[in-house]
Amino acid sequence: MAKIAVYGAGSWGTALAVMLSKAGHELTLIGRNQEQITQMQERRENTKYLPGVELPPALKLTTDVQALAADLVIFAVPSHGVRGAGRLARPYVREGSIIVNTAKGLEEGTHLRLSQVLSQELPGNRVAVLSGPSHAEEVGRDMPTAVVVASDLDTAASVQDLVMTPNFRVYTNPDLIGVELGGALKNVIALCTGIADGLGFGDNTMAALMTRGLAEIARLGVAMGGHPLTFAGLAGIGDLIVTCTSMHSRNRRAGVALGQGKPLAQVLEEVGMVVEGVRTTKVAYELSQDKGIAMPITEQAYKILNEGADLKQAVSELMLRGKRHEMEEVAALTLSKTK
């Protein structure tokens, strides 16, 4: 059994800590808010972020960052806090320890993937990414879940050995770029499916947004160095499905509220937790512009969130775009064979 530290006492950090503590690891959950940690120690429950899930007796709770001196350190903080968390952790994380990032996003300004951010802040450590369709509410209750860990194969296999349990199946994938981008960009599409739901649209619309959204995710992902097959896996279509269809998803819930006409500031306050897709939409749009990648759904999401675009006008612009082949590569191949 390993010594594991989970940094971040939100819903996902708590769920992972509960699961890995039950698996027999020496587990410490590190939070920043002493009042919250004290309440969790007394009630053995994270009533704010993961109500109804009992914390195992062996799970240690603290705000002391010295507990980051562990064999495996899992970062479960929002994407915009990853760099600061890595910098704060640097004096305490042991050189050679494996770092696992679970946040799904991209850094604003630099456009860096979060594994790149952590590699900059913790240069003496191997970095892996845990992604896939995994609601904290279900993992914390031991519901069967399948995820993927991405890194070099040796590091990924080491993480797989440590975090896999009978109800938490872990696959490995060496495509770190594809796994990270799939996990980050699906939040943009989940916002859009939520908006469509809030506008009163039906299943046809949802299916169209998810399918064409996946095409956009893969298009940008491949342009940035990801493997196309990764987007057909757990970090791609798997995470996209669960985030676009479940009301556990903060991004979908936020989108529904936007579609119902609520202003963004009110929506974010009502959700009460970080809605990663809002920040990621901006970065994804900027990347698409920089690389000349067509991402029409992402573009309309950017205009809605950042320019106050009318929701129904955004739908019209998507539906009335010029005619296209569904699969440009297939069309091009077919055309070449007829010549």
Rank of each mutant, 00 (worst) to 15 (best):
M40L: 05
P56C: 10
A17N: 10
L27P: 01
V53A: 09
Y49V: 08
A5T: 02
G8L: 03
N46L: 05
E45A: 02
Q41Y: 02
V18Q: 09
N33R: 14
E42C: 01
T47L: 07
I30T: 08
K48F: 07
A17E: 04
S21V: 04
Y49K: 02
L27A: 03
M19R: 11
L50C: 06
L27S: 04
E42Q: 13
N33E: 15
A15Q: 10
E26Q: 14
I37R: 08
G8I: 00
G8P: 01
N46Q: 07
G52K: 13
I37C: 14
I4K: 07
L20Y: 12
M19D: 11
L27W: 08
I4P: 00
G8C: 04
V6S: 10
E42T: 01
V6P: 00
V53Y: 03
V18D: 06
E35I: 07
I30D: 15
G13R: 05
I37L: 12
P51R: 05
V18M: 05
M19C: 12
G31A: 13
A15Y: 02
L16Q: 01
R32E: 15
V18S: 07
L50A: 05
V18W: 08
T47H: 03
V53M: 06
I37K: 14
Q34K: 13
T47F: 06
R43D: 07
Q36L: 14
M19A: 11
I30G: 15
I37T: 10
R32M: 14
L16S: 00
Q36A: 08
Q39R: 09
E54C: 09
S21Y: 12
E35N: 10
E54S: 10
G13F: 04
K22S: 11
A15T: 02
A9R: 00
V18H: 06
P56D: 14
V18R: 04
L55F: 08
K48M: 08
G31H: 04
A15E: 11
T14P: 15
G8Y: 01
E42V: 01
R32A: 15
E42F: 01
T28C: 12
Y7P: 02
E42S: 05
R44N: 05
P56Y: 10
Q34H: 08
M19K: 10
I30Y: 12
R32V: 14
T47R: 02
V6C: 10
G31N: 12
N46E: 03
E54N: 11
R32D: 14
E54M: 13
I37F: 03
Y49Q: 04
P57Y: 03
M40N: 09
K22I: 03
Y7I: 01
A23G: 04
A9N: 05
